[in-house]
Design a protein around this nucleic acid. Structure first.
Lengths: 197, 197
DNA sequence: AAATAATGTTAAACTAGATTAACTTTTATT
DNA sequence: AATAAAAGTTAATCTAGTTTAACATTATTT
């Protein structure tokens, strides 16, 4: 059982969506595990089954895909108060398409697939929490598709900077380029263009 | 109250995720409305609040976004047994970013925002249904982002044909080009290349 | 059957962004 | 402080996909 103090950010997060009794909160805390990763370690590896859905207490991760040509494509970043996993692998318990790697020392609270299923039986209110989280995630994902289609690389970069100023500070530029789907050289060009404007 | 016969595809769909009692099924049917749209009509219009989440009994829709330059970008198609709406607008009841237009005469079963909230109170099991639907939708959306980044236009077209052969038949090519994020001219070139291989 | 609108094709000129490669700056390690 | 490794820059060349524009084919309407 995780200490309530450590789990405070998770409880705060949950409260934004549903109201749990103290007893229900206790059940949640008894279903999860605390785990700390070092910089460079993998939470999920392409090919493995994704066993956990992880809530981030501190640190930063990137989720990426290595394609047939060996190219790395960053799908998302995650920082404090975000969730990360390979959901496709997690929900079907089949091998993961993506890697989740820590870019900093990262503290997490983890829900295992089976613990989560059991937890949802015991605290059905959490179905609502997950439903609402997924609604938001899906909407954000759709919006990203639209941006990909309708904005130039420069516009996408400006949008990223505006939407995630904290992430932009913490992460090397070449990873931001990968997230935007452009090369690091081209992002560099965009930045020098912006600087001279 | 919708006739049980008409709602059969919806009930079958729900049964793939959760098991409802007959009484619960009746509550579901009493919360929804049947509505038929003609070809060309809009289920949702950019700027309006999206009032309904629609399950498609027959027909076909496109969801698209018109950008600042007046360009239309198709985000998704939907056919029988799929759901369509502007989820972002639906869940927050704020104005929609997207249009949903019928490409054929389209019969739907619709959940209004308020009816759905009420329904979820009465039949909490449905939270699980929606959670699972959204998991799948989110995974599919993420995969599309990855394909956008890692496949050429030709590869994406082949993937589309393979994954949605029925849709490819029913829809004009220029809309498929829009869905893939390329021009109709370039799709035409790809097709002639493929034909001469 | 003719006319119109919608859809699809071809080809030339163009451009956003990729590739390659050499170089500079910053950060981490000894 | 010196060295190595990681991250970022610049510039020339290249290419996948766009734009423009004219034309061809297929549906739809009268």
């Amino acid at each position: 059982m995780i200490q309530e103090k450590k789990a405070q950010p998770l409880l705060d997060y949950i409260r934004r969506f549903v109201t749990l009794t103290h007893e229900e909160e206790t059940i949640v805390l008894s279903s999860v595990k605390y785990r700390k990763y070092l910089k460079g370690q993998y939470i999920v590896q392409q090919g493995d089954v994704c066993k956990y859905s992880s809530f981030i207490l501190s640190g930063c991760t990137k989720t990426f895909y290595v394609d047939d040509k060996g190219q790395e494509h960053i799908i998302m970043f995650a920082i404090e108060d975000w969730w990360t996993s390979d959901i496709g692998s997690f929900i079907t318990q089949t091998s993961a398409d993506y890697n989740v790697q820590c870019l900093e020392t990262t503290e997490t609270i983890q829900f295992s697939y089976y613990a989560q299923e059991e937890l949802l039986q015991k605290v059905p209110k959490l179905e609502r929490l997950f439903r609402m989280m997924l609604e938001r995630a899906f909407v954000a994902s759709q919006k990203r598709i639209v941006r990909n289609f309708s904005l130039t690389a420069k516009e996408q970069y400006l949008h990223f900077k505006e939407q995630y100023p904290e992430i932009e500070q913490r992460i090397p530029q070449y990873m931001i380029a990968s997230y935007l789907g452009i090369t690091k050289e081209f992002l560099s060009k965009i930045k020098s263009q912006l600087a001279s404007e």
